[in-house]
Amino acid sequence: MRSRSPAAAGIAGRSAGEGNTDGTQAVRRAAAILRRIGRGGTQGASLADVTQALGLPRSTTHRILKCLVDEGLVKHDTERRRYLIGQLTYELGLTFNESALDLAKWRVVVDRVAQKTGVTAYLLSRSGIEATCVLKTEGNSVVRVIPVEVGQRRFLGVGAGATALLAALDEELRENVIKTIAPYLTAYSTLTEDKVRELVDQTLATGYSVSRGNVARDVIGIGMVVPEAPYLALSIAGLANQIEEKGVAHWAQILRQEINAVRSKDA
């Protein structure tokens, strides 16, 4: 598989507030709203969440959301006052050709990693300055840790898989991403710009990323990017005592073996 260029991946895309009178501004704002709702997973996002993320007047955000709801791209849960990804967005997603990411091939790998480790395994795909969970398989542990759901989005650098994807970018792009996501890192008590840089440096030194309680308390995640497809990352997440029992390097080796097995078949 070939890696998409940074421009194609949308890493250097404009902000939601930019645009002009030809209609692109409205499209960018709608796309930014969908991404923000997607980051909330099954919890979605409130009007305040979306307004803050886009930096737009509340009335403008509400007007766009109402249009997206009317079109079926967004669902409004009136009881919880939350906005969720809508039915039409899901239906349009069904037309996406799985071969674009070779998901059928990777589904087997993710299942095998979950079986070998006993913890939850994921495949994440880079999407601009975010990572999207495209596959997930739960392990057989009595206590299951699922810090991210399929379809949920996270900023690069937040979580093990997303950090591995960030580390795979060239230095200039990496720094641009870190500066862009910096205002949002306040949602995570252990993450700062410098901490993300430190995690990236560790990833580059070891070949795999480690997230120790950065997203969920008492949870350790380990992620590894696919060398021939650096927009994909394989990762696992489990309770800290599960991971530490055999050591992080042990679990990272399982990820490496599975990725190498795929590389051998593709060679």
Rank of each mutant, 00 (worst) to 15 (best):
R4V: 10
A9S: 14
G17M: 09
E18N: 01
G19Q: 02
N20Q: 06
G23S: 07
G23D: 04
Q25Y: 09
Q25E: 14
R28D: 07
A31R: 14
I33V: 15
R35Y: 09
I37N: 00
G38W: 03
G38R: 03
G44F: 04
G44N: 04
S46M: 01
L47Q: 00
L56N: 05
H62S: 12
L65H: 05
L65W: 06
G72C: 12
G72Y: 08
V74Q: 01
V74H: 03
K75G: 10
D77I: 13
R82S: 02
Y83A: 00
Y83W: 13
E91F: 13
L94D: 09
N97C: 09
D102H: 10
K105R: 11
A114Q: 07
A114K: 08
A121C: 02
Y122D: 00
L124N: 06
R126V: 03
E130K: 02
A131T: 10
T132S: 12
T132L: 12
K136M: 15
E138G: 12
S141E: 11
V143G: 03
V145N: 03
E149A: 12
V150F: 03
V150W: 01
V150L: 02
Q152S: 10
Q152P: 11
R154P: 00
R154K: 06
G161R: 01
A162P: 10
L169F: 06
D170R: 13
L173W: 10
V177N: 01
I178R: 02
T180Y: 08
P183H: 03
L185S: 05
T186N: 09
T186R: 12
T186G: 06
Y188V: 06
E193A: 14
D194P: 03
D194K: 13
K195E: 15
V200Q: 01
Q202D: 13
Y208T: 09
V215D: 01
I220W: 04
G221I: 10
G223N: 07
V225G: 06
V226C: 06
L234V: 15
I236H: 00
G238P: 08
N241H: 12
E244A: 08
K246P: 05
G247E: 11
V248Y: 05
V248F: 04
A249D: 15
W251L: 14
I254F: 03
L255V: 07
R256V: 05
Q257C: 06
V262D: 00
K265C: 04
